[in-house]
């Protein structure tokens, strides 16, 4: 009986402590789910997409509406990347806590300076975003800036536990800075090398490590490559030194492999987001990406 009471009290204490900073966090992409987990490990985190999905092309399906309904906080890429589904999801969710003017609505890419910001956008340019390239998370420095904003928002949304978030951020920032130092050392030989990507997914990663993008397989963002376009790229790039033709886990590999064969370079699949190709969290995401590029040399 006594042990039962003890057990029950432990369970109850566990229940209450778990509830104390147990936010419901809705992440549009797994990278924001992973980042939220670093700062709010007790939170219930749901990622609307997986690393095997193209987050531009998701539907506001019933399961997402149900998750958004219960969320205390929403962390998405923003900069119009989710424009095809997030607005309708927010309108359907009946949840004021995550609407655009609330601290529980965090658009990560909009917190940092973006690359490829265009002065003029027309549809003939393909699926481009006037707000710039939204795939910011593969620059670890920007990721840290975003983590800082996420900390601030968590401290507002769950003010009672603000000291937890402050402490978790201090821990994360220290570990992250160390990791960045190691990655930058490891990746030093990649500096100045040239790559071809399927989509402009790796602009921030490349800027960080000093890689040069020669071309994209997509003739225009969002437009799938034709065999003719692959041939055109081959003619254009023949004789150039190409480190690799890069795709993400969500992108088709056939044309990338075809072009890589012609260029006598490797076709390399990078995870792009946690949850694919062995990347379990943000650390392994960067480590695996760097290792694969180093191996491609």
């Amino acid at each position: 009986m006594r042990s039962f009471i003890k057990l029950a009290s432990v369970a109850l204490a566990g229940l209450f402590s778990a509830q104390s900073w147990a936010l419901n966090i809705f992440a549009c992409e797994p990278e924001w789910g992973s980042l939220a987990k670093e700062l709010a490990p007790e939170a219930t985190i749901y990622s609307a997409t997986t690393a095997y999905q193209d987050p531009h092309y998701i539907e506001a399906r019933p399961s997402l509406v149900a998750k958004a309904r219960k969320a205390d906080m929403l962390v998405c890429t923003g900069a119009e990347m989710e424009v095809g589904w997030l607005p309708v999801l927010l309108r359907q969710a009946g949840n004021p806590r995550i609407q655009a003017d609330q601290p529980g609505h965090l658009m990560a890419a909009e917190q940092v300076e973006r690359l490829e910001v265009l002065q003029k956008v027309t549809r003939s340019m393909g699926d481009v975003h006037a707000g710039g390239n939204p795939h910011v998370h593969l620059d670890p420095h920007r990721l840290l800036q975003i983590a800082e904003v996420l900390r601030d928002r968590l401290m507002v949304v769950d003010a009672e536990n603000s000291h937890h978030y402050r402490q978790r951020f201090v821990d994360f920032a220290a570990r992250w800075a160390l990791a960045i130092e190691q990655w930058e050392q490891q990746a030093a030989p990649l500096k100045g090398l040239q790559y071809v990507a399927y989509h402009k997914n790796f602009s921030y990663f490349a800027e960080w490590l000093g890689l040069q993008r020669l071309a994209t397989l997509e003739p225009k963002p969002g437009v799938p490559p034709s065999a003719k376009h692959v041939q055109k790229l081959h003619n254009l790039l023949e004789g150039q030194s190409v480190l690799a033709v890069l795709t993400t886990a969500a992108q088709p590999t056939k044309n990338a492999e075809r072009l890589a064969r012609k260029l006598n370079s490797p076709a390399v699949v990078l995870p792009f987001s946690p949850g694919a190709e062995g990347a379990e969290d943000l650390y392994s995401l960067f480590q695996i990406s760097i290792d694969r590029l180093l191996a491609a040399r």
């Binding site: 119009e80 601290p103 909009e110 917190q111 973006r114 707000g131 507002v156």
Partner: peptide
């Protein structure tokens, strides 16, 4: 009350920063 006080100081300072960092066309 915490939200009112903190939001002005914390959350919206970062929103304002974001606006300076690049406008979103929508």
């Amino acid at each position: 009350s915490v939200w009112m006080a903190a939001s002005a100081a914390v959350a919206f300072s970062s929103v304002a920063d974001a606006q300076n960092r690049g406008r979103i066309s929508s």
